[in-house]
Simulated assay, not measured.
Amino acid sequence: MFESAESILNKILRGEANDRLPEASRPDYENLVRNCNRRRQRKRPNDPTDMDFEVIIRNV
């Protein structure tokens, strides 16, 4: 959750990408990062709409 989309994507691509394929057959890196960020955004809590909210502090 606290890792950047680029670092997540780099880990996946290192293990799964086939460097022998032509570059045109691979998806665009910037599009993959944007898509990753959009999917991660759905898991984030909504921003508060007023000043009446609780702050939950977790010791990690």
Rank of each mutant, 00 (worst) to 15 (best):
E16A: 15
N10H: 03
E3H: 14
M51T: 14
R39A: 02
V33Q: 03
K43I: 09
V55E: 09
N46K: 07
E23I: 07
I56C: 01
A17S: 09
E30Y: 01
E16L: 14
S25P: 05
C36R: 01
D52I: 12
M1G: 12
V60N: 09
N31C: 00
N59Q: 04
E23V: 12
I56H: 00
R26E: 01
L32V: 05
L13S: 07
Q41L: 08
P27I: 05
L13Y: 05
L21T: 15
N35K: 13
I56Y: 00
R40M: 13
G15E: 14
L32F: 03
I8F: 02
V33K: 06
Q41I: 03
E54M: 10
T49W: 07
R26V: 00
N18L: 13
V55K: 12
V33G: 04
K43E: 15
N46D: 08
S7I: 06
M51F: 14
E16T: 13
V33T: 04
Y29M: 02
S4M: 09
D50L: 10
G15S: 11
V60D: 14
I8Y: 02
R26T: 01
R20H: 04
E16M: 14
N35C: 07
R38C: 07
R34C: 03
G15W: 01
D50F: 14
D47L: 00
T49I: 15
N59E: 03
I8H: 02
P22A: 10
P45A: 10
E54V: 10
N35R: 14
A17N: 09
C36Y: 02
S25W: 07
E6N: 08
I8N: 04
L9F: 05
Q41D: 11
M51Q: 15
E30D: 13
R42G: 06
F2C: 13
R34L: 09
